[in-house]
Nucleic acid binder design. Structure first.
Length: 301
DNA sequence: CCGGAACCTTGTTG
DNA sequence: ACAACAAGGTTCC
């Protein structure tokens, strides 16, 4: 076990970030967050001035990188500062960091995320780890590493269904095979521009435009990606309708109707042109705000 | 290309 | 308690 302390290069809230539905593998043990990341298992805790990481399998996992501590938030915020709502949210200091994850792991988790809720996604990911990941002894019990492409590609659909994946089992297996065979290289996607990366991602089984945007933003350094889920759909149609075609707004407002690929493209393009090259940061702020408002409401009633 | 339905399952809601 | 519904969408037709 390798323990290191990293000074907080800027303030952010660890707990809020780890439950913000950017990743689904984290579990808390009295303020200490334990989870599988990339090819290791880590326990993280936050002090007022630092992040302390215990790394159980390696010594190269960097919280600075994972939490994007080196992004220049002043530049980013200045860039986003032609938007009143974002200004308000930035002033409120939600302190939720944007994560930069391992693409293989990130893609797997978002494959599990479709038509699903955070709690269940988390259960699915933890089951996959338990069934297919290498067990590691920690003070918090046996924690399993994230499975390799090899192990998931040789899994049976039946085994994956036993992890609670449902109809996603086939997607996960097929996707794992593609990666295991080397038919897609995430390094190429990192080098590619946003548009090309998304175009390649949506060719993969179970990955549509929304999941492709999440992967691009959270693991491929495409900070202009603006994933639109149901929460962003609501915010956009109610607070940013001026940027959109009337017919698109009507379509978004009627939640009984699905978002067609073209509508998704229209709307997210409009948002990207509004927010610019760091649109993903704006998306994260809007998403967290929407969720926060809802949780306050459920507590109040 | 578009719209609508089906999709596994579980946690939450009324 | 228990049915109905929603849940960070995608695929198929």
């Amino acid at each position: 076990m390798n323990s290191s302390e990293y000074p907080l290069e800027r303030q952010f809230d660890l707990a809020s970030t780890l439950i913000s539905a950017q990743a689904f593998q984290w579990r808390e043990f009295n303020g200490i967050w334990v989870g599988a990341v990339a090819d290791t298992v880590v326990a993280i805790r936050q002090t007022p001035s630092s992040i302390i990481v215990e790394d159980y399998c390696a010594d190269n996992w960097s919280p600075q990188e994972y939490f994007r501590m080196r992004d220049n938030l002043e530049d980013i915020n200045r860039d986003l500062r032609n938007d009143p709502l974002i200004d308000t949210l930035l002033a409120a200091k939600a302190d939720i960091a944007l994560t930069s994850q391992d693409p293989w792991q990130c893609t797997l988790m978002f494959l599990c995320s479709t038509n699903n809720n955070a709690k269940r996604i988390s259960n699915m990911v933890l089951s996959l780890n338990r069934m297919f990941g290498v067990a590691v002894e920690t003070p918090y019990g046996k924690i399993h590493k994230f499975p390799s492409p090899r192990s998931l590609s040789s899994a049976t659909v039946h085994q994956l269904e036993a992890c609670g994946l449902g109809y996603r089992a086939k997607f996960v297996r097929d996707f794992a095979s593609i990666i295991h065979q080397g038919a897609l290289d995430f390094k190429d996607l990192k080098k590619a521009n946003y548009k090309d990366a998304v175009a390649q991602l949506v060719e993969l089984p179970g990955i549509g435009p929304k999941v492709a945007d999440c992967i691009s933003l959270l693991s491929l350094d495409k900070l202009e990606a603006f994933p639109m889920d149901i929460w962003i759909r609501r915010v956009v149609s109610r607070r940013y309708y001026r940027l959109l075609e009337k017919s698109d707004v009507r379509r978004l407002l009627d939640e009984s109707k699905t978002v067609s690929p073209q509508l998704y493209r229209h709307v997210t393009l409009a948002m990207r042109s509004h927010f610019g090259r760091f649109a993903g940061y704006a998306q994260n702020a809007l998403y967290c705000n929407a969720k926060r408002l809802v949780s306050e409401r459920t507590i109040a009633t």
